[in-house]
Structures are given as C-alpha cells and as structure tokens.
Design a protein around this nucleic acid. Structure first.
Lengths: 193, 193
DNA sequence: CTGAATTTTCAGACATTTCTGAAAATACAA
DNA sequence: TTGTATTTTCAGAAATGTCTGAAAATTCAG
C-alpha cells in the first residue's frame, strides 16, 4: 500500500471493519482512500494506493455507488472518471443510515406486514404472530421517528443531538405548560404539576 | 423444517436476512425460532425444528450468547439448558444496538482517537487528519446522544419517539421561553432551576 | 467412583465470497 | 471509420466462512 503511514492505518482499519459493516475489505479500503483524499481520484489512483487489481477496483466502485456513497466528476479533456465522497459528513451518515435501513430493515418490515395479515391456524401460530406484531410495531415506531428526524436540517439535528437526555427536561416543561388547571394551552409556566 | 407455515416463513426470512445483519443464516434462524417460541427451548428442540446438526445449534447458541441475546433457564431434574429471548422487545433492541455499537463503532472511535494524536508529516496527512477529526466528532456526537437516550426508561423513550419531528416545536418553544427580552434565563418555569 | 445424558470442540467436507487476469465492451479523438 | 484509452465483465483461482459427524469433555445421578 503506497499511502503515508497515518493514512495507511486509517485505510487498513476500514478494511478490517468492512466485514463487520457488511461490505468487504477492499470496498472498505476504497472508501477510506476516497474519504481522506485531497482531490477526486480515478480508478488507477486507487489501484496505485491499494495495490489491488484494476477489476477489483471497478467492482468496488460499483458497490459503493450502489450505496449512493460516491460522487463523480469528469475532467474536460480527460477520459477518466474521478470519484470522491461528499464533503458534508452529516450527509454521508444520512445516506449510510438510509441505505442500511433499506437493506436491513425494510425487507423485514414488509415480511412482517404480510405475515400479520394471515390467519393463525393453531395456538402456536397465534402466539408467534403476537411476537411478530410486537416486533413490527416497534420497528414502525423507530423507523417512523427516523423518517421524521431525517427531515430536519443539520443545524436542528445537531441541536437535538447536543441536548441528549436533557431532552426529557424539555418534554417535562412542555407537559407542564399544557397540563395547567383551567383548560389546555395556557402558557403560564408557574402554576401546574 | 418442522414448524407451522407462518412460523416457517418468519424463520426463513430471518435466515435470509442473517447475512445482511452480520450473522449467518443458521444463527438467524435459531434466534427466530426462540423469539416466537411459546416456551424456552433446549438445543434438541431447535435441532428438530430446523433440521440442522446438533453441533451447529451448539455453535449458534454460543454466538447468540456472545451477543447477549439469550436468557437461559434450567429445569430442576432435567440436565438440559433451556433458552429463550427476553419478553421485553424494547430490551432486546437496546441490547442489539449496544452490541452493534460495541462491535461496529467503538473500535473505529478508538482508532480515530489514536490517529488524531499523531503529528501529520505531510500536507496530505494533515488533510486526512482533518477528515478523520470530522468523522470522529460526528461519531462522538451520535454515540454520546445514544448513551444519554439509553438511560431513559422505556416509557420516556416511547414518548420521545412518538413525538418525531414535532420535537422541533418543543425546542422552539424552549428557545422562546429562554430568549425573552429583559435578559436571559428569565422566563423559566421554576425559579431556582 | 461408574455410566448415561448432554454439550462442546474440531478436522475436514462443502459452500460462498472475493479477487485476478484476460477478454469484451465502451467511449471518444482524429 | 480506425486506433487508443478506459471501464466492465466474467471464468476460474484463492480465500474465507459454514456445517457436519465423530470424538472429547462435562455434568450429574446413583
């Protein structure tokens, strides 16, 4: 591998983690190289940096593209394609989570929906269906929340994230505001509880 | 496979999804069987239901235990161990997310921390380190938020999740309360914080 | 202790995934 | 069009992962 030591450590780590992330070593390394590159890279740049075959790079790039993780740029007068990752790391994470949800959660949700439509034909099927419903409802709650949060601008998201569990205090405050004696929606803070 | 049709469909799906979830087919199926079972099962019960070898079940159970996904119960006068999944599906998801974080995120965070301590020895290393810092800071923000939320009781968590993006309205309200004319921190509900 | 019931380990068979080089396809300048 | 640069495809080699049966280990009643 022909990259500076610091970069090499990063790239190797991404390669090793690849398998845990459901992509393979090479794909992880290609992504890492692109992520830290100072400029968009063409396929041969990646071959040089990682010492892997050209065809492997081609397949790896295809894979990353199927995850919507790459942008490409073509230089006038140059026939090659240059690849880079988005600058905005928040956007990257949004994409990543979206894609994982699409591959790892949505199919299950749709199978569960289908199975919940069927009529159980025994006590054990009835029980199983109960468990499936619990799973279904929780996944819906989580993905519904995610869909909502996904709509927020980065600014708002950071605000929310920074709040952490202190969000509970805000929720409490809201509850108190809305739960005053003498009717709802009376914004006098002090009285209630 | 000797389970009712509805259960079979569920189990087969979990098997197929297994590879996307970073576990193998058999382990996915074993989990599925335990998840929908009406009572704790012993290893041989699983062999019967899935038609796989006893040793495979043994390894699969070990794997699931390493994920903290199983509870076991021993019946007096019976030498066998019986396995089951927790009843509380929220607890299951908490465990799942914890374990995935531990395996998929924490190692990266620690590598990033280490790499950010090093001194860059070239312009390209400096740039790479900048990207690593962005990644590091975002992961810290996300995992920090997660750690906070993990502390909430299920009740609170559901409240928060149900709110979805309407949380923003609550945040706005909070901002307005704290940003009234006449100095900061004046419109708080209770005086002493 | 012995011996039966049960679980675990592990070498090798089998299956799947990843990687390569060579060939085919594509894109485009001249 | 031809020729060259570049990308993609794909068959098979290499590597990795999964599964099984047999043997070893463990557990516990008697």
């Amino acid at each position: 591998m022909s990259v500076p030591p610091l970069c090499e450590a990063f790239v190797l780590h991404f390669g090793e983690m690849g398998s845990r992330w459901g992509i393979n070593r090479t794909v992880g390394q290609i992504y890492a190289v692109l992520f830290i590159a100072e400029r968009p890279l063409c396929a041969d740049d990646i071959v040089d940096r990682l010492n892997i075959s050209r065809s492997n790079v081609s397949m790896g790039l295809k894979e990353l593209q199927s995850w919507n993780l790459l942008r490409q740029r073509s230089v006038p007068g140059d026939r090659r394609e240059f690849f880079h990752t988005p600058d905005d790391i928040y956007a990257i994470v949004r994409t990543l989570v979206d894609e994982r949800k699409k591959r790892e959660i949505d199919p299950t949700l749709s199978v569960l929906r289908e199975l919940l439509m069927r009529s159980p034909e025994s006590e054990s099927e009835r029980h199983a269906q109960g468990r499936m419903r619990e799973m279904h409802d929780l996944i819906e709650l989580l993905t519904g929340w995610y869909a909502e949060v996904q709509k927020l601008e980065t600014e708002r998201l950071i605000q929310l994230l920074s709040l952490g569990s202190r969000i509970v205090k805000v929720l409490d405050m809201k509850d108190r505001l809305f739960a005053l004696p003498g009717g709802k929606r009376n914004a006098q803070p002090e009285k209630g509880t």
